[in-house]
């Protein structure tokens, strides 16, 4: 079963455990500035939102890459950057409508979420369930259940 990261901003407290887990997994350092998932703080509204690559089916980054350094991992569905091939031209960072591919000047390559090969560290680290890794075809299941419950006037 393919899975996807499901992000629920209303559960996020802005603790950045996900950013540290991501950078530790990929850089062996606790370094939010190198994280592929980012948490945004909309201060005056009192709201937080984690955001990362949604692994588009028709991935702009993949199609735009002139050297075919971005490939699909058939097992996870993730669009992964092949560091050996990436030339750091940054065209993918322009092509991505969501800003989730970014250049890393330390390596001279781009970096993006690769779902950690099927065990996303961010989801494991999140203390509130704001980031979960669920059936890619059922990301709306919880929301549907909540609405169904409301329409019935049922209790959980």
């Amino acid at each position: 079963m393919l899975r996807a990261l499901k992000l629920e901003p209303e559960r996020c407290t802005g603790c950045l455990q996900c950013e540290m887990a991501c950078s530790f997994e990929n850089e062996q350092l606790f370094n939010p500035s190198k994280s592929r998932i980012k948490v945004f703080n909309f201060h005056d509204d009192g709201r937080f939102a984690p955001y990362t690559c949604t692994q588009c089916a028709e991935a702009w980054c993949l199609h735009s890459c002139p050297v075919e350094a971005i490939v699909i991992n058939a097992r996870t569905g993730a669009k992964e950057v092949l560091e050996d091939i990436c030339v750091g031209c940054k065209v993918c960072t322009i092509a991505c409508p969501f800003g989730t591919v970014n250049y890393n000047h330390d390596t001279g390559k781009v970096q993006k979420c690769d779902l950690c090969g099927g065990q996303p560290a961010c989801a494991e680290a999140c203390p509130t369930g704001a980031i979960t890794y669920v059936d890619i075809d059922q990301t709306g299941l919880d929301r549907m259940r909540a609405h169904a419950q409301r329409s019935l006037g049922a209790s959980a």
């Binding site: 802005g14 603790c15 455990q17 009192g46 937080f48």
Partner: peptide, 13 residues
């Protein structure tokens, strides 16, 4: 109260 919020790295919030 609008929400609870965490400091850096805090899982209590």
């Amino acid at each position: 109260l609008v929400t609870n919020a965490a400091c850096f790295g805090c899982t209590i919030a």
